[in-house]
């Protein structure tokens, strides 16, 4: 299977572990990722807030570039990029005047006929659990995992059209298929503070604190994420959260593709597991998985 791949800025910056593990997992599943040539940033929340036309235009520009690849599907690992691509395509289909304005802004046409996937949806729905199950060589036996979806991949459902916004289960399914023990909890799609990490770190600590506290209380070995913003906010703020609670939190925060790669039999260093702030390797070694 060949699909367009839109990695987004973080995956070539601070979230390289996500990018390399995505590429590894897809290679193992015989999926050819064709990177969208000269793709641009989706503008993320700053563009979305400050200028609606700009925000839609940036995603439309990426859609136009992807359409030229002549592939029917585009996959975005970053949930925000995914949501912006979907929004842009859908808003232009609904509003011909907006479409015209956007096309004038990007100086090219957008056909609007791509199937846009977030990576989790692509793997669970398009590739399928059966194909994934067949590749498992080293099940994640005995690993207690907290599935954390965050907001952007499921909310708002009118845009994402994916899973259940309050109680999503696709990540649970994938982790179970990989042999992990999936723990239930109440914060599956609660916010981590997202883009406020730099400007309002105290807000991020407040929000991630709820997640880390609950995951620790449930005896998790790791929190599993599908979003690089969730990863960074949870991975980097545990010391501050611990200071408030007078505790020391050391809860690894891992991309689901890293765990899938491990279960497929790949070495941990090749998946970027050695690059996180809170070290996941110790617990993985203890369980005989790394």
């Amino acid at each position: 299977m060949r699909v367009s791949y839109y990695p987004g800025c973080s995956l070539e910056g601070t979230a390289k572990s996500y990018d390399i593990s995505v590429r590894h997992v897809c290679r193992s599943l015989d999926i050819q990722l064709e990177e969208v040539p000269t793709w641009a940033c989706c503008g993320s929340s700053p563009a979305l807030k400050m200028n609606r036309l700009l925000s839609t235009a940036l995603s439309a520009h990426n859609l136009a570039l992807a359409e030229r690849q002549n592939l029917s599907d585009v996959v975005a690992p970053c949930p925000f990029c995914f949501r912006r691509l979907k929004s842009a395509q859908e808003e232009m289909a609904r509003d011909p005047a907006l479409r015209q304005k956007v096309e004038q802004t990007i100086e090219s046409q957008v056909n609007g006929n791509l199937t846009i996937h977030n990576l989790l949806g692509f793997l669970t729905e398009r590739v399928g659990m059966k194909a994934i199950g067949e590749k498992i060589r080293k099940p994640l036996t005995g690993l207690k995992l907290i599935p954390y979806y965050g907001c952007y991949v499921v909310k708002p459902p009118s845009v994402t059209c994916f899973d259940d916004p309050a109680n999503p289960t696709s990540l649970d399914e994938i982790l179970r298929a990989a042999g992990g023990e999936v723990l239930d909890w109440d914060f599956k799609s609660e916010c981590c503070g997202a883009g406020l990490s730099l400007s309002k770190p105290e807000k991020v600590c407040e929000l991630t604190g709820r997640l880390v506290r609950d995951a620790a209380w449930r005896g998790a070995d790791a929190i599993v994420v599908v979003c690089q913003l969730c990863q960074a906010n949870l991975d980097l703020r545990q010391r501050e959260i611990g200071l408030t609670d007078k505790k020391e939190y050391q809860l690894p925060v891992i991309y689901f593709t890293e765990l899938l790669g491990l279960a497929f039999g790949c070495a941990s260093e090749q998946l970027g597991l050695d690059r996180h702030f809170v070290d996941p390797l110790a617990v993985l070694k203890r369980k005989g998985l790394a």
Partner: peptide, 18 residues
């Protein structure tokens, strides 16, 4: 922060996080 983010995108097409 949002201004700096967009400045980077405007110039380089992508945000240079660091």
């Amino acid at each position: 922060f949002e201004e700096l983010f967009l400045k980077s995108v405007e110039k380089y097409g992508r945000v240079k996080e660091l």
